[in-house]
Design a protein around this nucleic acid. Structure first.
Lengths: 232, 232
DNA sequence: TCAATGGTTCGGCAGATGCCGAAGTATCAT
DNA sequence: ATGATACTTCGGCATCTGCCGAACCATTGA
């Protein structure tokens, strides 16, 4: 009973078009102002405020007041994961081509994007596949990976901040996240986030100003080939 | 824009309390009848029918008509995954106690009964499992089996009237029939009927005067163990 | 053949909810 | 102070949609 209510309440929150539009925007992992989200959802500020308040109340969103702005972001990686898996479902559905979302066919977005705070798309999958194929990651349970000793060495060599990742003891360390465009799991969790940070810090990848699309730089391509043994 | 619609449409389907209750029940991975799901959701059959139709239309559920029942199940592991990740957001608790019809709990009926003209229940499943595990039956298409050469020999040895079964050219020969109580396919079609006939003719099983319940005799138990290698 | 059962469709009703205009609060700029 | 900006609360309206009664179809069992 309670579990059912919990399921329907959370799903119903995501099930409104305006709120879904806001959540989609927030999937870039950044914090956005209420105005921004109202614009994205195509509703007035009052309406957006109501939606945002409800989602924050339900712990789907976290709020931070800054001056006269209020910044909203996804409350946790779990929220992002749930949204991603719903999107994967939606992608499965056979739809008339004319109604298919333009951005779902966007090749850049399919190639590389942020999924909350880690990498997704072909690049995210390439990184994940490299780690598993070289024995750095091993399946653990139904939805996690385990970092092997060789994986620890690899992270140290490439410059992934493992100690920092381990500090976030509250979140999953090496979580599987279903990629909606590739339809296979990529690495998320603290380790996925640390890997993404490495990509951005070393200039291997850059977030575009708008949207979730990430551009892989030339040095990023070289790093993928040299360090990960991945051909992209 | 359509992407948002896709997300919100899927989420909205899961966001109704009645539909969420149905999905929760279906999370056991088994197929359930529309009546079962209506009961679980606490709504009437008409209302449930509407919900189930919508979820099937959206490819969240798969349907299989079986006699006058319609069995619904989750369309794919991805659906289960999405539901699970939504449940994770609000914390998981115990499942609601399912109220099932009295006859469904009748242990004798669950043990052995006729399903039209063939055997169902634990005995029907035991027979079917024996045939498949010994290589006598092989899957053929989505809803049929194929009798292998070793299966032909086995039938001859046990005394199943194969020529008679083959004469009924109008009906399926070795059909899969979803077992109501075991929720797994058992053998039906002309071959299933011929096998059941053998059970009754040899005194391995007896139909009770009323209802569909079938009693397995002592010699039937021995035959199951000796000829089928099944422990009941 | 006829009744019982499982399931669906249709139509109308009632409650839920999303929407915006108007008004109110807090912060910033001048 | 005064005005502008960002955001929220309130109230009423329109729509949506879930619900059930009634009727209908298909299969089954006798």
């Amino acid at each position: 009973m309670t579990t059912v209510n919990a399921l329907s309440e959370v799903a119903a929150l995501m099930g409104d078009p305006a709120r879904a539009a806001m959540l989609s925007l927030l999937m870039d992992g950044r914090a956005h102002t209420a105005s921004d989200l109202a614009l994205a959802a195509g509703v007035t500020a009052q309406t957006a405020s109501g939606h945002l308040g409800r989602m924050a109340e339900a712990d789907l969103l976290a709020v931070r007041a800054q001056g006269r702005n209020r910044f909203y972001r996804l409350a946790s990686p779990d929220v992002a994961h749930a949204i991603e898996s719903l999107m994967a479902l939606a992608g499965t559905r056979a739809q008339p081509a004319s109604r298919t979302a333009a951005w779902r066919r966007d090749p850049d977005l399919r190639f590389c994007r942020t999924c909350y705070d880690h990498l997704a798309g072909q690049v995210g999958i390439a990184v994940t596949d490299s780690l598993t194929q070289h024995g750095h990651l091993e399946p653990k349970g139904a939805r996690d990976w385990k970092l092997t000793p060789s994986g620890e060495l690899f992270c140290a060599r490439v410059g992934v901040d493992l100690p920092g990742a381990r500090q976030a003891s509250t979140r999953h360390f090496a979580r599987q996240c279903l990629d909606w465009s590739e339809r296979r799991p990529h690495i998320s969790g603290a380790l996925g986030s640390a890997i993404a940070d490495t990509f951005f810090k070393k200039g291997w990848a850059e977030k575009l100003r708008r949207g979730r699309t990430v551009r892989l730089t030339d040095s990023g391509r070289r790093a993928l080939s040299r360090d990960f043994g991945a051909a992209i």
